[in-house]
Computed example of a mutant assay.
Amino acid sequence: MTDQANDFWNEKMKHLFHLYDADGDGSITPRDFEILADKLSSLVGQEDVKRREDYAAARKSLCQEIMRADANQDGKVTLEEWLDFHKHLAKELHKPDTNPEILEQLSERINTTFNMLDLNHDGYIAKDEWVKTCQFFGVDQTTAEKSFEQLSKGDKLEEDKAKHLFFEYLKSDDPNHISNCCLCFL
């Protein structure tokens, strides 16, 4: 990896870290996932009991996957642990014989992410779902709409394509790769 590509990838992963550090204390803990799940469930309405339950389950699953980065097992993921974990993950994903256990763990993380973005559970991420979620994470509407147009064909992003883009996002150090339009939802 060139220095420029490495710098780009590190900045991308730092941004992702800060999205998960919901309370802004400099580490990712299970509490951050509770905060995110509560906030995300408001996108579909707090009165929707089923969706709140879905987000609670997703929060638990995503938390378990992300907390794998807690190298010293102290109950929190620091930025250094986060970067080390994802460097190892990206290196592993570039291998032709990627460890099946790592692929299964990443697949779970990607499935959970997709399900959280597919607000109405129709198997697609619609433009309005994408824009709402982007805005939740502080992305302005114009940028969100532009990124969606780059990723999708029409007004829906198909599940397989979305999951492939999420996978590539974690792996790619190319600043021009289309997966960078995913805006760090993983």
Rank of each mutant, 00 (worst) to 15 (best):
E159Q: 13
E65L: 11
H164F: 09
K146D: 14
L165F: 11
F136I: 09
E92D: 12
R52Q: 15
W82Y: 13
R59F: 00
C63S: 15
E92T: 13
I125H: 02
F166K: 01
L157A: 05
F136P: 03
E129N: 03
Q64S: 13
L103S: 06
H94F: 13
A58S: 14
K153P: 00
F85C: 05
D97K: 09
E92L: 05
A58T: 03
D118E: 07
Y55S: 01
N72M: 07
D84C: 02
L106D: 03
V131L: 02
I102W: 02
L93H: 05
N72G: 00
E129L: 01
S107D: 14
H164Y: 11
K153A: 12
D122I: 01
T143V: 13
S152R: 02
T133V: 12
E158M: 07
I102K: 07
M116H: 02
A144G: 09
S61G: 12
S41C: 13
L165A: 04
V44S: 15
A57L: 10
D174L: 07
H177R: 05
G45P: 07
N111D: 15
D74F: 06
K171Y: 10
N72A: 04
S41T: 13
A58Q: 14
D173P: 00
K156I: 05
Q46R: 14
Y124T: 00
L119S: 04
K132M: 07
R52E: 14
A126Y: 01
V139T: 14
R52V: 12
D173C: 01
L89Q: 09
D174H: 06
F166L: 15
D128I: 10
R52Y: 01
I66T: 10
E129A: 03
Y169M: 09
G154A: 09
S152T: 05
F114I: 00
A126K: 11
Q135I: 08
Q46S: 13
L43A: 06
E108L: 12
S42D: 14
D48I: 06
L170T: 03
E108G: 10
T78M: 11
F85W: 14
M116Q: 12
L89A: 01
R68H: 11
S179P: 02
F114S: 04
E92K: 13
L103I: 08
K161N: 07
